[in-house]
Design a binder for these strands. Structure first.
Lengths: 131, 131
DNA sequence: TGTTAAATGAGAATGATTATCACGTAGGAT
DNA sequence: ATCCTACGTGATAATCATTCTCATTTAACA
């Protein structure tokens, strides 16, 4: 994705277009396997050696607020960021701390129906453990 | 539960019996609503004003290792500790950061069966979000 | 081009948890 | 009962991801 396209995505959301924001959103799209803030910073420092860690966190939060990306927390407690895509589950491997996308409409239905019957409103489906 | 009973539980697991350990395990049993380390420390300080925070964490970890209690992580990232009981789910309220036990064999089956069919081995069931 | 609200960078602060290490004590041996 | 010794404890420093602060810079609009 080119800088122009990313810039457009930002202004579309009413966000100011800055080189840092372009770099951060670009990094998340490029590093498409659920990068941590650290992964993103490491990647960006190649071209933006002076970017501040605090800025990255702030920008990530504003992206989450504006539905450009989403944030998931791993078992080990650190946050990971994904470009927004259609609803999906995550399979989480305890051994390797790896996250894998898992789309499964049937499972969505299964769980939503189950909780609906019980009168419990589910907001989102969360990570399942597996080996 | 009396100190003697708790002491027995400890020695049964090959753990040394110390006043601190009795107090900590006693506190978890008494405060039976998923206390945090901080809750436990606060409770214990009444009778053991000199207990060290580090000690509490170390003792909690050794209890977890010895299957006396278990540890769950809330969405906000802090750990909570429960006396060990039969397998159950946790309902987690995002607004209040409250955890509630939720036992539901049907749900266990539903999910285990589902994943078994897919060839994914589930280890444990984790927290669901709800409102 | 100038204005100004918002974004950034640098570094300090936070807060739960872990590590370190000198001292104290539980529990088996004597 | 007393002595040893390994293990537990208390005090405090270190960690580490994330958040905060605030002086400086910059994007966006007039």
């Amino acid at each position: 994705m080119h800088a122009k396209e990313i810039a457009y995505k930002l202004s579309e959301k009413g966000l100011r277009v800055t080189p840092q924001r372009i770099a951060i959103l670009g990094a998340i799209i490029k590093l498409n396997n659920h990068p941590t803030a650290e992964n993103i910073i490491e990647y960006i420092k190649k071209n933006h050696p002076n970017i501040s860690i605090g800025t990255v966190y702030k920008v990530l939060d504003s992206f989450v607020e504006n539905n450009l990306i989403k944030k998931v927390k791993t078992e080990s407690g650190i946050m990971r960021y994904d470009p927004l895509q259609s609803g999906h589950h995550h399979l989480y491997c305890e051994e390797t701390d790896r996250i894998e996308d898992y789309e499964d409409e049937k499972l969505d239905e299964l769980i939503t129906d189950y909780f609906n019957k019980k009168g419990i409103k589910t907001l989102t489906f969360k990570t399942f453990n597996f080996i």
